[in-house]
Design a binder for these strands. Structure first.
Lengths: 222, 222
DNA sequence: GTATGTGAAAGTGTTCACAGCG
DNA sequence: CGCTGTGAACACTTTCACATAC
């Protein structure tokens, strides 16, 4: 097993893991702006978190700061990347569902710049199979499991209609996928919830949260 | 003021508000499947929440169930829509940034089916202004404030590069917008955080959370 | 002097467990 | 008798506040 971390292994709350990518995103911007060091206070200001929150979160993983001085932007960025599993490696992804939404996902350039590569695309529609989109050839669902294993794909992207999504994640799970980015508007039940992470992408859910707080405003007319 | 709710007004946790849209989404599917009633247990199974969680969440807003029997799907769905501010009304949205991502957002049909209409689109690029995308004519940023007021737009969608996003939300805020769906990969600081809700859409953040849990798996080479 | 790292306190959110109602 | 609705117990998170190190 790898070198033991400074920190005695304490369970790390999910909330902490959720914030780390935001820290990383902010640090990358600071680095681009040639900022060399940052305090928990200034990082907190940029992200609307309290300084104590940031220090506590980071303390789960080690002591990265210098007292009286703050954190070195570049060093902290590298440590966070490594903590998040983004250090000097790529993650390979498979897209399932090459409809309008699927094509938009394929065209979203930021995945590649952040080390996430879509290396295979699948659809159950026979008229799409073997067509090309960009540099990828759409494959039949029958090839899913084999391709995932051969091409070392770790992450699945589900972009099929809700009615098909549950079956698709079963197939992805059976092929050994451990993480799924779900664009279908349905909460999916994995067969092995302990092993498989699912993240939903549904802007409608986010809009509906916000309208809760606004429901007495604007457009009163029917 | 409308009829007083049964519940004495207690502060409702954000976590509860976050779950309500998921309840609604599940209930809509159950209605489509002609399910007439549902217990907190079966709704919880579908969403990976505990039955107690669901009962407690709903109890913030009233007593919607029948003891011994559960909840009537259609009735609970309607109550949730009304709680979320989705009862019998539309929300109007303005898109800022009509690049590749902005166009994909314009083409995303689910907004309209859920009562969210994009009624105006803006870009600062003069070569895009006055071009048509679908049924919309791209407008100059100078017309932002006036259009938002005249067309009763309540929600802004930010789809500009990170470097421009902070300025764009300032303009949206100044025009009176109270909710922003932010697709730019940066955490935005509103001028009046108490008044303005912002939701980030960034699938990269979600992928990076999942890779944290997977960092010892797959593609060990390189 | 200044900002981190961290136990302890305060504050929130979730689950329990059962009374009460249909 | 089953399932809701809900105080009370429990678990978890955040903030406080200060000793510590640069």
């Amino acid at each position: 097993m790898a070198r033991p971390s400074n920190r005695a292994s304490k369970r790390i709350p999910d909330n902490v893991i959720e914030r780390l990518p935001k820290y990383l995103r902010a640090l990358i911007r600071m680095e681009e702006a040639s900022k060399e060091s940052v305090s928990s206070k200034s990082l907190g200001d940029a992200l609307n978190y309290s300084p104590a929150q940031i220090r506590k979160d980071l303390s789960y993983f080690g002591r990265f700061g210098k007292r009286g001085r703050g954190y070195e932007v570049k060093k902290l960025k590298e440590r966070l990347k490594s903590i998040l599993g983004l250090g000097d490696r790529q993650w390979n992804m498979a897209l399932v569902g090459v409809g309008k939404l699927g094509r938009a996902i394929l065209g979203y350039g930021r995945f590649a710049t952040q080390g996430f590569r879509i290396v295979a695309a699948f659809d159950r529609d026979p008229t799409l199979v073997s067509k090309k989109v960009g540099s990828l050839t759409i494959q039949d669902m029958g090839e899913l499991a084999e391709t995932i294993r051969n091409r070392e794909i770790q992450i699945g992207i589900v972009a099929v209609p809700a009615s098909q999504a549950q079956e698709v994640i079963a197939q992805l799970e059976n092929a050994g996928i451990k993480a799924i980015l779900n664009y279908a508007p349905i909460t999916l039940a994995p067969q092995r919830p302990e092993e498989v992470k699912i993240q939903d992408v549904d802007p409608i859910l986010q809009l509906q949260m916000m309208t809760f707080f606004m429901k007495n405003q604007g457009e009163p007319k029917k």
